[in-house]
């Protein structure tokens, strides 16, 4: 069956069975591998993408239910890697292994789109579906706040903004 999705602003048609998880359509049929496989069961959030602007777990989303809709992946979050979350994640130096972080960023970006000034509680609620096996939660919280600040200040700037959490320079 052919399905047409608007992926990162471009119309894409894929010919796969209806129940194929969107995750694997992205990773295999469309070669967008930034979206990660962690559990396949909506437990970890590594596969988070935006479907019509809402953060969803692509591993349990059959392609048929995304047909005709807009999908945004980490690759399409900004044209040049300067979404406030992408800048903030670098400023705060969040990742350890980094495997969960695309999903964390996608959840955070969806939160910020709705709530430009999230509280810790808002962050906990929006990102509770995103596991970080390496335990970078303290920095993830800091980075979401930082992204909110950057967005409010009218950044993104073209490059990381300087001050880094934990920096001792």
């Amino acid at each position: 069956m052919a399905y047409t999705l608007k992926v990162n602003g471009q119309s894409k048609t894929v010919d796969v069975p209806a129940d194929t998880p969107l995750l694997w359509v992205l990773r295999e049929a469309l070669d967008l591998q930034g979206t990660k496989f962690g559990c396949g069961a909506a437990q970890c959030g590594a596969c988070t993408v935006h479907l019509n602007g809402v953060a969803i777990r692509s591993c349990v989303t059959p392609v048929v239910s995304a047909n005709g809709k807009a999908v945004t992946t980490i690759e399409g979050l900004s044209p040049d890697g300067t979404h406030p979350c992408q800048i903030a994640w670098q400023d705060v130096d969040v990742p350890q292994c980094g495997y969960c972080q695309a999903g964390q960023i996608m959840s955070a970006a969806a939160l910020l789109a709705k709530k430009p000034k999230p509280t810790d509680k808002d962050i906990d609620e929006a990102l509770n579906g995103n596991l970080c096996r390496c335990g970078t939660y303290v920095r993830i919280r800091a980075a979401v706040h930082k992204a909110a600040e950057l967005a409010a200040a009218g950044k993104p700037a073209g490059s990381p903004s300087g001050a880094r959490l934990g920096g001792r320079e």
Partner: peptide, 11 residues
Amino acid sequence: PGTEVPKIVTG
């Protein structure tokens, strides 16, 4: 900061 962080945050 991690040298691969820019790649991680852009997928």
